[in-house]
Design a protein around this nucleic acid. Structure first.
Length: 263
DNA sequence: CTTGAACAGCTAATTACATCA
DNA sequence: GATGATGTAATTAGCTGTTCA
């Protein structure tokens, strides 16, 4: 690489070290190019050996020496203001705009480029912050929805449990009643009566408790629930698997509650 | 047309300094 | 006045795309 070009090309980040040299003195020599730079610097101005042109040297001397010599300087508020306005218009910097801005601001084109690079980095960091906040609030909202759904689910479960218990006790009562009907001795019912009942109009007078329950379920079950099987909820038949389709979140213990399916 | 060197410009990470509490 | 936190200008390494011989 041509050392002269390396030093005097102020637009390339790889090959620009003069500014740092100026600001830091001999302590700021790049470990990569320090040798070439220091050898070229000797015999010239020791404090600021590298500038692109005499005019720029004059401008730099004016700008830096008028303020804090040998120190890193902040840009003036009006310089930052113009840079910000330019950044708002377009956050990428074409060479023409860079030169124009540098001329207007009295800065090196390289400084303008660096400012834009850092500004893009800051903008990106802010964007990430905003994205994070947005995702966080979205997550919190989903979490809250989830919690309320869990609560609703718990409520519905306890409703199912209490209704199932009611059904079970009702079934037990009806079964006991049916048994007493079938046992005339216990009721003191004459044998004849039983005969009369059993030979009635083609059907048994012994009421199937399950049928009774089935017929009465609509008044007991919450909306959306329909019985699909016998009331004896302890029975687990092959139909259980089919019934899972509508409520597959039911666990093993849920299966004991019955065959209620979400409609 | 392909290839490789040179170069410009970018991002990401880091350093060094200024400023402020 | 010393010190740690923060903001920012500048540097560095690595990557990609373009130009040109």
């Amino acid at each position: 690489m041509d050392p002269a070009r390396l030093i005097f090309d102020s637009s390339s980040s790889h090959r620009y070290h003069g500014q740092r040299m100026l600001l830091l003195g001999s302590g700021g020599v790049s470990p990569v190019f320090g040798g070439a730079i220091s050898s070229l610097a000797e015999g010239a101005n020791k404090r600021r050996p590298f500038f692109t042109s005499p005019d720029e040297i004059l401008e730099e001397e004016y700008y830096y020496d008028e303020q804090l010599p040998e120190k890193k300087r902040r840009l003036m508020p009006d310089q930052v203001h113009l840079l910000e306005r330019s950044f708002e218009a377009e956050n990428k910097l074409e060479p023409e705009r860079k030169s124009e801005l540098a001329r207007k601001l009295g800065l090196q084109p390289r400084q303008v480029a660096v400012w834009f690079q850092n500004r893009r980095a800051r903008w990106k960091a802010k964007q990430l912050e905003h994205d994070f906040d947005r995702l966080k609030s979205s997550y919190n909202s989903l979490l809250s929805d989830h919690d309320s759904l869990l609560k609703e689910n718990d409520g519905l479960r306890s409703q199912v449990i209490s209704l199932t218990e009611k059904l079970q006790s009702k079934a037990a009562a009806l079964t006991a009643a049916a048994a007493s009907v079938n046992d005339p001795a216990s009721l003191g019912v004459p044998k004849k009566a039983e005969d009369r009942l059993s030979t009635g109009s083609g059907g048994s007078a012994v009421v199937d408790a399950n049928q009774l329950l089935h017929s009465s379920e609509e008044s007991c079950l919450p909306d959306g629930y329909h019985s699909m099987g016998p009331v004896d909820v302890r029975v687990h038949s092959e139909e259980d698997d089919a019934s899972d389709e509508g409520c597959n979140y039911y666990s093993e213990e849920d299966a004991q509650l019955g065959w209620w399916v979400w409609n």
